[in-house]
Amino acid sequence: MAELTQESLSEERPKVAVGTPTVIVDDLHIMYKVYGAASEAEKGNAANALMRVLRRQGRPQMKEVHAVRGVSFVAHHGEAIGIIGRNGSGKSTLLRAIAGLLPPHKGAVYTNGQPSLLGVNAALMKELTGERNIVLGCYAMGMSPAEVREKYDDIVDFSGIGEFVQFPMSTYSSGMGARLRFAISSAKTHDVLLIDEALATGDRDFKRKSQDRIMEMRESAGTVFLVAHNLDVIEETCNRVIWLHKGKIKMEGDPQEVLEAYNKA
């Protein structure tokens, strides 16, 4: 952090109004346990399990993963922050920690209001019609019945699934499903919005549309965090980029500079 502020201090100060801090991540460490992942010889059969119990070995191969190792930054009102990095660099873990869904091992996350992950997929049921899923998803995000009625048509329009809304979601093509899910999850306004790879689906038109929606949300929401593998999306949507590498911030700042460095690496 110190290094970063030094860097930015030396730059000229452009005259743009800056919002107040909305998310402060202070020397955050996240560790979590992974069960399973046993070696070939220990893999689950009853005899092996019994031997383990007799030998008092406990669970097979419980591993601790140190996914985020000391990340600090301050996010402000009006920022859209892209988080980039290779697979397993801790991007999604960081998002979950900001959302308050993973407890810090060390350090802390301070937020203003409740940051929310964009995505209601887990609440939806594929056997149900799109119609029911819209209502269910909206309630799951904490809307009131009045809000649901108000947003319902918007959601159907935005998803562009038309009369398929009467059919079970299991009959949808993967693109349609993704569009409906995005439409539902983006129907609510958030103070701090966290988006994990949500833009990677759908056809070109829909990508365009969803990017516009993200822009809109960025204006109404205080702060947007975006994790995506598609760097174009990051470049177009974000005004600040954090590059995570093995759980640490490798570089942070202006999208063009960071992305350039990232592409060279």
């Binding site: 110190a2 970063l4 502020t5 030094q6 930015s8 201090l9 730059e11 100060r13 452009p14 743009v16 800056v18 801090p21 301050v74 402000h76 009006g78 920022e79 922050i81 470049e235 177009e236 005004n239 600040r240 700042g253 202006d254 999208p255 063009q256």
Partner: peptide
């Protein structure tokens, strides 16, 4: 699209 808000933000945070 490069907006300099973040630079300012950090400058403010660190400038104090």
């Amino acid at each position: 699209m490069s907006q300099p808000e973040s630079a300012v933000a950090d400058a403010q945070a660190g400038g104090r």
